[in-house]
Structure formats: structure tokens, C-alpha cells
Design a protein around this nucleic acid. Structure first.
Lengths: 144, 144
DNA sequence: TCAAATTAGACAGCCTCTCTGACCATCGGT
DNA sequence: ACCGATGGTCAGAGAGGCTGTCTAATTTGA
């Protein structure tokens, strides 16, 4: 679809590498029933719980898809659904104790990879990379 | 699985934005029977054709998956399979004339997006971004 | 030199992710 | 008190990916 070194591919390669590392770390810690699609939802759950519809919007999937993924997360014990006190139609998706345990593991894996990247690029270029990407988000992220 | 602004998410957002733009451009030009998975294979086909197994390796999918995607591309007329003169077991996947027509369309869409990004970031920061990502590829791309 | 290991590829069956469409319950404004 | 908008579920479908098994052809080594 284009030439070899377009920015898209250049962005995708390290993204994939990071994602793989995080899932390997989670699997090594015994959390092997966690899929990337589930993680994209899980990541968006706020401290007091978040509604399904809001999760769907932020993850840019339909609410049916979000519901499907939350079903899986619930069955695996990572989240639970509780009634929303402010709206009887809605339910809040909340992180369960088991789910909460995965957070530091994933965070550690991310930190480890970022440290490797910093060692490779040097602190200045890493900082510039982060800045450029953050700036790019302004024109590429519909939910910035 | 981690905090909001990890590098993974920052990388993924512009990648997705670029991909979407390219597929919109192809669809607008009448090539709407093209999926991202097919494109990841299609991109890797060399000028003289490439073997299925090699495509599978480079796209990091199994050869079964690659075969399935090439089937679709062949049915849609974007590629054809010809015998490999140097190995009777193998066949070369080659880009057909119809497939070749999509290349400048995709390239133009990529160039357009990159121009927008350059306008947003400025030429210096864009160059630094590309450099940093290229450098990162050395430690994150298994097929560098 | 010929049997064994390797490689290219196809077929079958399964699972996950995502979508559309239809539907019900509740909320909120007029 | 109603009616449109919102939160969520159910049913069905299709794409994309996997493993496992099989064949044909090639390469390798005793």
C-alpha cells in the first residue's frame, strides 16, 4: 500500500513490540487469559467504574463489541458490573481485586520497555519522541 | 493495563489515523474491496513476486493465514500466482496490473497525511520523529 | 544414491473480534 | 403523560487469525 519506510509502519513496529512485551509479562505472572482487545477496554475503566457506552466510545468500538469484551473480562474475574445509582438503565463496569493486581505488572513491563528505548535513543531523543507523538495526538485523536 | 499516556498508546493513535486515511482514499477511488490484513500482505510483495512463506514471515502471520489472504487478493484481481521457476513446490505471488494501480493512490494518501503532520510539527520535529522511529526499529523489528 | 529431514503450500476446523439490526427499559424535556 | 434520546442486550454474520494434518518436492547425509 505504500513504500517501505512510511511513518505508519515505523509507528506500528514499536507499538507491536511494546504490546507483545506487556502481554508476555502478564502471561508470565499467571494472567494468561487476557487478550489485547480486552485490554483496550480494561485500560479505560475509571477509578469509580465506567459505563459500557462510555468505554465503547473511548475504545472506538460499538457498544455490542464492548459488551462482549466486558462479558469475557467479567467471566475471567477481572471486572464486575454494578448498578449505576444515578441511572437505573445503566451499570458501572468496575475493576475487581483480581483485575487490580494486573495493573502494576503491566505498568512495570511498560516501564521496562521504555527504559530500553531510552537507553537506545538517549534521554534527549526519547523526550523529543514523546513530545512529537503527544503533539501529533492533537490532530489524530478524535477523543483527545 | 497501564497509565493513560504510555508510549504504546501514543504510537498507536497516529498509526490508526494514517491507516484509516489510506483506506478511505482507496475506497474513494473504487478499490473498496481491500482490507487492512490484505494490505499488510500486499505491501510485502517484491517487484518480481514473492513466495507465500516469505510473505507470511514478514507480515508475522502463519502461512495458512497468508494463503487465505492471498486467495482473497487473487479473487479480487490484485495479485496472481505463477510457478516459481527455481522451485517446483513454490509459487510466486505477483502484483497484477489492477493491483499496481492502487499503489500510487495509497502513496498519495500517505504523502498527504505526512504533509499534514509536518505542517503541525514543523520540519525539524518531523525529521527527528522519523529518525527516532527508524532508530527504534533496530531494537523492535525482528525483520529489520 | 537413496532414505530421511526439510520446505512450500493446501485443507479442515476452531476461536476471537467486530459489525449490523432489532429490541427492551429508562430517562428527560415539553 | 408522553415521546424522543439514551443505556444496554440479544441474535446473526463475516473477517482474521490460530493449530493440526496432509501432499508434493527438494535438500541433505550416511
Amino acid at each position: 500500500m505504500a513504500d517501505e519506510l512510511n511513518l505508519g509502519l515505523l509507528l506500528f513496529i514499536p507499538y507491536r513490540a511494546l504490546e507483545t512485551r506487556v502481554f508476555d509479562a502478564l502471561a508470565a505472572a499467571g494472567y494468561d487469559d487476557f487478550t489485547p482487545a480486552q485490554a483496550r477496554i480494561f485500560q479505560r475503566i475509571g477509578p469509580n467504574g465506567t459505563r459500557l457506552t462510555e468505554l465503547a466510545e473511548q475504545a472506538q468500538v460499538t457498544k455490542q463489541t464492548a459488551g462482549f469484551l466486558v462479558d469475557q473480562l467479567e467471566r475471567a474475574g477481572y471486572v464486575r458490573r454494578t448498578p449505576d445509582p444515578s441511572d437505573a438503565r445503566a451499570r458501572l463496569v468496575q475493576i475487581s481485586p483480581r483485575g487490580r493486581k494486573t495493573i502494576p505488572i503491566a505498568a512495570a513491563a511498560v516501564a521496562e520497555v521504555e527504559a530500553e528505548w531510552t537507553a537506545h535513543l538517549g534521554p534527549t531523543r526519547t523526550k523529543q519522541l514523546r513530545q512529537a507523538l503527544t503533539s501529533l495526538r492533537e490532530i489524530t485523536d478524535p477523543y483527545a
